[in-house]
Amino acid sequence: MAGVLKAGSPSYGHWRVLVQALALAAALALGAGERASAHTLSLVVLGDSLTAGYGLPPGKAFPDQLQAALGARGWDVKVVNAGVSGDTAGDGLARYDWAVPADANALIVELGANDMLRGLPPERTKAALAAILDKAKAAHLPTLIAGMRAAPNLGPEYAHAFDAIYPALAGATGASLYPFFLDGVAGDPALNQPDGLHPTAAGAAAIVNRILPSVEDLLRRAKS
């Protein structure tokens, strides 16, 4: 048959080398793809007791349940619980350099509730959060800031100033914004512990369910 390559001919030798080269290239590409898919993303949640899991059994804090939910959706991610009960935004800033490792891939900032409960000046909270976001931006770390809202008993003037912190910072720094971390949970006795401030395990699950699309967007940014 015309055009058939015969073993031993120069053309056959060239063809064989070409096929081997293509096979090697394909194998290398497949190996690279497998290595990329095996890379576990590191997502740090820098927060207060709402992140730390105050009053919750092991494995039921927000970061734990978030990792489980992301895993169920196919994400290879380790969610690091960098929450400390009682922390203000200033406290979070003070420990940022050791709480957020250099190899982190993404960051969620959940701070400000204790500032509000203590009636700290909103401009002070805003300055601390801005410094945290500036650090993350300098490290090219995709960040989601979770907002908080002032309690009604603090008055409308305080509430107006405090509630405006989070959208203003997201707009100024390019961070993603989840407007209210306790959305759908705050004020619901069935989803909060007896103190009325900290979510139950079911409450943490409700937070995860609502924030999950925003976190997935954050992880897509980290991967890109």
Rank of each mutant, 00 (worst) to 15 (best):
G3D: 12
P10R: 08
P10F: 05
Y12W: 12
W15Y: 14
Q20W: 13
L22S: 13
L22A: 14
A23T: 12
L24G: 11
A25R: 13
A25W: 09
L28W: 13
A29V: 14
L30V: 15
A32C: 13
G33R: 08
G33C: 12
T40Q: 13
S42E: 07
S42I: 08
S42L: 11
L43V: 05
V44W: 01
V45R: 03
V45Q: 01
G47A: 07
L50H: 11
L50I: 11
T51E: 02
Y54R: 14
Y54E: 03
Y54F: 15
G55T: 05
P58D: 14
G59S: 07
K60L: 10
Q65S: 08
A68Q: 13
A68E: 07
G71K: 13
R73L: 15
R73C: 10
V77M: 05
V79C: 07
V80I: 15
N81A: 05
S85C: 03
G86H: 15
D87F: 09
D87Q: 10
G92F: 06
A94D: 04
D97M: 06
W98H: 04
W98C: 02
W98Y: 03
P101L: 03
A102F: 12
A102R: 11
N105K: 08
N105E: 02
I108H: 03
I108C: 06
I108L: 10
V109S: 05
V109E: 01
V109Y: 02
E110D: 10
N114D: 00
D115L: 06
D115V: 06
L117S: 09
R118I: 09
R118G: 05
R118Y: 09
L120D: 10
P121M: 04
E123V: 11
T125R: 00
T125P: 01
A127G: 07
A128H: 10
D134Q: 15
D134H: 15
A136P: 02
A136T: 06
K137T: 11
H140V: 06
L141G: 02
P142E: 02
P142N: 03
T143E: 02
G147D: 00
R149P: 00
R149T: 04
N153D: 10
L154S: 04
G155K: 04
P156G: 07
A159V: 08
H160P: 04
Y166E: 00
P167N: 06
A168S: 09
T173E: 03
T173A: 06
G174C: 01
A175R: 05
S176A: 11
P179D: 01
P179K: 07
F180A: 01
D183I: 07
G184T: 03
G187A: 02
A201F: 09
A201G: 12
A202T: 15
V208N: 07
N209R: 14
I211Y: 08
L212W: 09
L212S: 09
R220F: 15
A222P: 01
S224A: 12
